[in-house]
C-alpha cells in the first residue's frame, strides 16, 4: 500500500475512536450527572439498570429510539427535522482539533494523538462552537410554539453575549503561548519554573475564571440555563421534540460540555502533561498511555465540577445575566489583556 492510503486509514481510525470516545463520554456523563444529583440532594438516583445504574443511559437510548415519532402539525418540517441533527453534528465536529496525547512512535510512524493538527486550532474551535446556536434557534422557530420561540431567542442572545467574553478571555493565553496551534500551547506548558509546572492557570488566573464562567453560559447550564427554565418556559426550545430528536439535544449538550472541559484542560492545565514525570525514564508507549489517562482524568475533574455547580446554584434572572456578561465579564477580560501586556513588556 502506498503511504497515502496508510495515512488515510490512520486518520479514519482516529476519527472513529474519537467519535466513539465522545459517545462513551456522554453515556458516562449522563450517569455521573444523575447519580451526582442524587448524591448532592441526599437521594439515590438511578441504580437499578446494571451495576450501580451504569446501564441506565443505554436503556434510555434504546427506549428513545423506539418511541413514537410525532411532528407538530404547524411545524416547518424540514427545519424541524434538521435542527437536532445539525446541533449534534456541530457538537461532534468541534472536538476535531483537541489533542488528547503526545506524539507516539508506532511501527516507525509518528502518530499525533489528535484528529487534526491545524495551525488555527483555537479559531477553528470558536468558529464551530458558535454555530451551535443555529441548532437551538432553528429548533425554537420551526416548532411553531411560543415557549420554543422564546427559549430559542433567549438562548441565542445569551450565547452570543457570553461568546464575546469567552473569546477575549483566552487572548492572554495566546500572548504567552504565541500560537493558535493547541499543541504549541501545551508545549509551552510542559516547561518548569524550578519545580512548578508552567501551566497557564498560574499565569492567567483571571482569564481562567472568565473562561470557566463563560463556558458554563455557552453550554446553557445552571446558573445560566435561562433558555430552558422549566418553571416559566417548560423546557424552552425542546418543548415540541420527542423520541430520539429530543435525545440528540442531550447528546449535543453533553458533547459540548466535554469539548469545553477539554479546552479548559488544554489551555490552562497543561493538557496531557503529567508534571515531574520526565525524570522517571518510562517506556515511551507507556508514557503516552499515561498521558492520555491523565488528560481524561483532568477532563472528568472539570465535568464533575460542572455537575457540582449545576446542582448547587439557583438560576440568574435574565437582566442580571445580560448585565453580568456585558458589564462585568467583558470589561474584566479587556482588563486582563491589558495587564498581561504590561507585565510582558516590563518582564521580558
Amino acid at each position: 500500500m502506498s503511504p497515502f492510503w496508510i495515512d488515510l486509514i490512520i486518520m479514519l481510525i482516529k476519527v472513529i475512536v474519537v467519535m466513539g470516545a465522545l459517545l462513551g463520554g456522554v453515556v458516562v456523563m449522563v450517569v455521573v450527572e444523575r447519580r451526582g444529583a442524587g448524591f448532592i440532594q441526599g437521594r439515590l438516583g438511578p441504580n437499578r439498570v446494571g451495576p450501580w445504574g451504569w446501564l441506565q443511559p443505554i436503556a434510555d437510548g434504546i427506549k428513545l429510539f423506539l418511541k413514537e415519532e410525532f411532528i407538530p402539525a404547524q411545524a416547518y418540517k424540514p427545519l424541524y427535522l434538521a435542527a437536532p441533527a445539525f446541533f449534534m453534528f456541530i457538537a461532534f465536529v468541534t472536538f476535531a482539533v483537541i489533542p488528547f496525547g503526545d506524539k507516539v512512535e508506532l511501527f516507525g510512524r509518528t502518530i499525533q494523538l489528535q484528529i487534526a493538527d491545524v495551525n488555527i486550532g483555537i479559531l477553528y474551535i470558536f468558529a464551530f462552537a458558535s454555530l451551535g446556536v443555529y441548532g437551538i434557534v432553528i429548533a425554537g422557530w420551526s416548532s411553531n410554539n411560543k415557549f420554543s420561540l422564546m427559549g430559542g431567542l433567549r438562548s441565542a442572545a445569551q450565547m452570543i453575549s457570553y461568546e464575546v467574553a469567552l473569546g477575549l478571555s483566552i487572548i492572554g493565553v495566546l500572548m504567552v503561548g504565541q500560537s493558535l496551534r493547541l499543541n504549541d500551547i501545551i508545549g509551552m506548558q510542559t516547561q518548569y519554573w524550578s519545580y512548578l509546572p508552567r501551566w497557564n492557570i498560574f499565569i492567567q488566573p483571571l482569564g481562567f475564571l472568565i473562561f470557566l464562567i463563560a463556558a458554563i453560559a455557552e453550554v446553557n447550564r445552571i446558573p445560566f440555563d435561562l433558555c430552558e427554565a422549566e418553571q416559566e418556559l417548560v423546557v424552552g426550545y425542546q418543548v415540541e421534540y420527542g423520541s430520539m430528536k429530543f435525545a440528540m439535544y442531550y447528546l449535543g449538550e453533553y458533547t459540548n460540555l466535554i469539548t469545553f472541559s477539554a479546552l479548559i484542560v488544554v489551555l490552562f492545565f497543561g493538557g496531557w502533561h503529567i508534571p515531574w514525570i520526565e525524570g522517571l525514564n518510562i517506556h515511551p508507549l507507556l508514557l503516552a498511555l499515561l498521558q492520555v489517562v491523565a488528560f481524561v482524568v483532568k477532563v472528568f475533574a472539570f465535568l464533575w465540577f460542572f455537575v457540582w455547580v449545576r446542582w448547587t446554584f439557583p438560576r440568574f434572572r435574565y437582566d442580571q445575566l445580560m448585565r453580568f456578561g456585558w458589564l462585568v465579564l467583558l470589561p474584566l477580560a479587556i482588563f486582563n489583556i491589558f495587564v498581561t501586556g504590561v507585565v510582558m513588556v516590563l518582564i521580558p
Binding site: 484528529i115 487534526a116 491545524v118
Partner: peptide, 19 residues
Amino acid sequence: FLPILILLILSALMSGGMV
C-alpha cells in the same frame, strides 16, 4: 484539514442516521 473533512462526513452521517 483532510481528517476534519472525514470527521464532518462521518458525524453528518451519524446525526442524519439517528433522525
